[in-house]
Every structure is written in structure tokens, then in C-alpha cells.
Amino acid sequence: MAEIRVKAEIAGSVWKILVQPGEAVAAEDSLMLLESMKMEIPVVAPRAGTVLEWRVAEGEAVAEGDVVVVLRA
């Protein structure tokens, strides 16, 4: 099975994690919310899979391109 590394598309801070490891997600499901420039930006699953691990925690700062979560397709 393939691993999918989901990256932050914008720099910001992790506002809320919406799914936990082991949960199944569909393509385009919101995985987490980033706060950037006083806006909430959803990070979505590029395709269906299962959440393997988070690489960030709520409140943590992320840079554009950082891997934030790993899915198994």
C-alpha cells in the first residue's frame, strides 16, 4: 500500500486536528485547519486512505511544504 505525505500549502499554525490515526478519510475530507493571516485554511486529503501518523501537533507552527500527516492509500 502506498503512503501519501500530505504537505501544508501555506505557512501558519496548526489550529485544529480533525481526524485521528486509524481513521479512514475520503478524498477531499478536511484533515486539519491551519491558521494563517487570521484565516482558517483546511488541509484536505488528496485521495481516500487511512491516517497513519501526524507529524505536527495543535498549536505548532508549520512552513509551506512541511509534511503534516501521512496517509495509507
Rank of each mutant, 00 (worst) to 15 (best):
E9A: 04
G12E: 03
V69S: 02
V19F: 01
L34C: 08
A26E: 14
A73E: 00
G12K: 03
D66Y: 07
L33D: 01
K38E: 08
W54N: 08
M32G: 00
I17V: 14
E3C: 01
K16N: 06
V56A: 13
S13Q: 12
D66Q: 14
V6T: 01
V25G: 09
A61P: 06
G65M: 15
V62I: 04
M32I: 00
V6D: 01
E53C: 09
E60I: 07
M1L: 10
K38I: 05
R55I: 02
A63H: 14
E28C: 00
G49N: 06
M1A: 14
V14Q: 09
L34S: 02
L52M: 10
A24R: 15
A27R: 11
V44C: 15
S30E: 14
R72Q: 13
P21F: 09
V14S: 04
K7S: 03
A24P: 03
V14G: 02
V56I: 15
W15Y: 13
G49T: 13
M1Y: 04
E58K: 04
A26P: 00
Q20A: 15
W15Q: 09
L18R: 13
L18E: 01
L18C: 06
V62T: 01
E23Q: 05
V6W: 07
G59V: 12
G12D: 05
A26I: 08
I17G: 06
S13H: 07
L34I: 06
S36W: 03
R5E: 14
P46R: 08
I17A: 02
A2C: 08
V44T: 15
G59H: 08
Q20R: 06
A61H: 11
A48V: 06
E60M: 14
K16S: 00
V69G: 05
L52S: 12
E40G: 05
L52D: 10
A24V: 06
E58R: 05
I4A: 07
G49H: 06
I4K: 14
V19A: 02
P21R: 11
V14I: 14
T50L: 14
A24G: 12
A63T: 10
G65Q: 00
M32V: 00
V69I: 15
W15T: 08
K38T: 13
S30M: 12
G65L: 14
E40C: 06
M39N: 11
